[in-house]
């Protein structure tokens, strides 16, 4: 059964990615603003990486875009319309422990489809397809606690993408993984995202990761948000290019200042 369903690869999502925007936005919890005067445009279908020191409000930014936190002032928009609450179109991937521990791997991946009211057979099929896609075709029945940290993030990725969201918001998804597993996951992410047109906002504190994955890098903390174009995105060989190295220096220098 696994081989059969694995063969029916996930359908490419025809829907274009969302354009996300923040206008003079004040972000944070009521009474405790973390970021002020944020202006940011995320272009449809791009992969924007967000770097900044820990505590500078990266997660707050992501949760605002997800619709979990309302802006304190200013506005947050998706395709021009104000974001008023969470929506299945904007999936969130957490650093760790984002899976429901009482649901099997399959149960977790099927969740967005169940919420959408898809039939059981269809759910099974799509979940199996995505589990195969992220390299875990035979772990569907396991509980999350029986998986390694890297495997759990693979499942989170499958769960986020199975519902074909138009934007994927990732909160340091590989931050808790060891260097080697992180490298594997970065390759997997690039591979998997190649099939969707979803906009991705990827928060990380790792400058090299930001440079490897992003079309653009947004610098957070200390003044207005700056965005920088990455010379040749998602090319592992680009890390040694002079323009990448100088961009890297530039980012590190501005992080030191903030």
């Amino acid at each position: 059964m696994d081989t059969l369903t694995a063969a029916s690869a996930p359908v490419t999502d025809p829907r274009p990615g969302l354009a996300l925007g923040l206008r003079r936005a004040e972000l944070g919890r009521p009474g405790a603003p973390v970021l002020r005067g944020v202006d940011l445009d995320v272009r449809p279908g791009e992969l924007l990486t967000v770097v900044g020191r820990s505590g500078c409000g990266k997660s707050t930014l992501l949760r605002t875009l997800a619709g979990l936190l309302p802006t304190l002032s200013g506005e947050a928009t998706a395709d021009g319309a104000a974001i008023t609450g969470p929506d299945a179109d904007r999936a969130l991937v957490f650093q760790e422990d984002g899976l429901l521990p009482w649901r099997s791997v399959r149960g977790n991946v099927e969740l967005p489809l169940a919420i959408r009211g898809l039939g059981r057979a269809e759910r099974r099929d799509q979940a199996a397809g995505w589990l195969a896609r992220v390299g875990l075709p035979d772990r569907a029945r396991d509980l999350p606690q029986r998986l390694s940290g890297g495997q759990r993030q693979r499942v989170q990725l499958a769960r986020a993408l199975v519902g074909s969201p138009r934007a994927v918001l990732m909160d340091e998804p590989f931050g808790a993984l060891d260097a080697r597993t992180r490298g594997e996951m970065q390759l997997l992410l690039v591979d998997v995202l190649g099939e969707t047109r979803a906009t991705v906002v990827f928060v990380t504190h790792d400058v090299d990761e930001a440079l490897l994955l992003g079309d653009r890098v947004a610098l957070l903390g200390g003044g207005p948000v700056r965005t920088l174009d990455v010379p040749s995105p998602r090319d592992p060989d680009a890390a040694a290019l002079p323009e990448t190295l100088s961009l890297r220096e530039q980012i590190l220098a501005s992080l030191r200042q903030s």
């Binding site: 949760r63 979990l68 969470p86 999936a91 429901l100 009482w102 919420i115």
Partner: peptide, 25 residues
């Protein structure tokens, strides 16, 4: 709160959160 946020951003409403997160958790 992560579990609730996960279900909300997957499109779930209050009842979903109650049945899939609050009670089992």
């Amino acid at each position: 709160p992560v579990w609730e946020e996960a279900v909300l951003t997957l499109g779930g409403g209050r009842l979903r959160v109650l049945a899939q997160v609050v009670l089992p958790g």
